[in-house]
């Protein structure tokens, strides 16, 4: 999902920066409040950032013969929503742009939008909907994490197709590169987080119950 340095025209670079900025500003405000007010959520915040650091450093092989980065944003999305996740993504993307020549400063806005906003937004909407219809936690976690990952890459394809038209034919080419490779990696990421959240629910229900209320069967 990293659009390489210099690969978006100045207009598009500015456009995505302006679109992403309000989410990041709101996210910073949320992060500050969480750090000040709620020690339990502080732990979860640290874990959210840690997972994004670990997962997005991996480059995993996919059945398509390409490799790609997972995003690690699903956990943060579930527990804190889009704003906070955009801040976490911004931090890791700056690290990668400056130290790894992955992504770039001119494409930072676009990359924050795909990884920290669009992917998490779709995942968060799905998470809320699944909570409403009482989807069991493991399935809910898996689907949320999978969507946060795959939709990030779909967004990148849309961003590139917008910049390098004609939109529809370009979109097909970019989706072919990004999406199919990403599906197995989204599944991998989904399984790993499902296991971790299950562990967390048992080991530290005090941390998860705000978002994943204890099930009635467990209390009986």
């Amino acid at each position: 999902m990293h659009i390489m340095e210099g690969f978006l025209s100045l207009e598009w670079a500015l456009f995505w920066t302006v679109v992403s900025a309000p989410f990041v500003v709101y996210g910073f405000y949320r992060v500050r409040r969480i750090i000040k007010e709620d020690p339990a959520q502080r732990t979860m915040l640290a874990l959210s950032g840690a997972f994004i650091f670990v997962m997005s450093s991996f480059k995993l092989p996919s059945v398509t013969g390409s490799s790609s980065h997972p995003t690690g944003t699903g956990f943060s999305t579930m527990f804190f929503g889009v704003g906070v996740t955009s801040v976490m993504s911004l931090i890791v993307l700056i690290f990668q742009a400056l130290l790894l020549a992955h992504g770039g400063l001119t494409t930072l806005g676009a990359n924050v939008f795909s990884m920290g906003i669009a992917g998490p937004f779709v995942a968060y909407a799905a998470f809320r909907a699944m909570t409403k219809v009482r989807v069991p936690t493991p399935a809910k976690v898996f689907i949320t994490v999978f969507l946060a990952d795959v939709f990030t890459y779909i967004t990148t394809a849309v961003q590139l197709a917008l910049a390098y038209g004609p939109f529809l034919s370009s979109l097909t080419s970019f989706l072919a590169v990004f999406t199919i490779t990403q599906i197995p990696l989204g599944i991998v990421e989904g399984i790993l987080f499902t296991i971790f959240v299950d562990y967390l629910e048992r080991a530290r229900p005090d941390l998860t119950e705000r978002i994943l209320p204890r099930r009635v069967a467990d209390e009986a």
């Binding site: 390489m4 480059k59 490799s67 980065h69």
Partner: peptide
């Protein structure tokens, strides 16, 4: 196993 970031730039 070329990274998709590089393939994206190729496209």
């Amino acid at each position: 196993f070329t990274g998709t970031d590089d393939s994206g730039s190729d496209v």
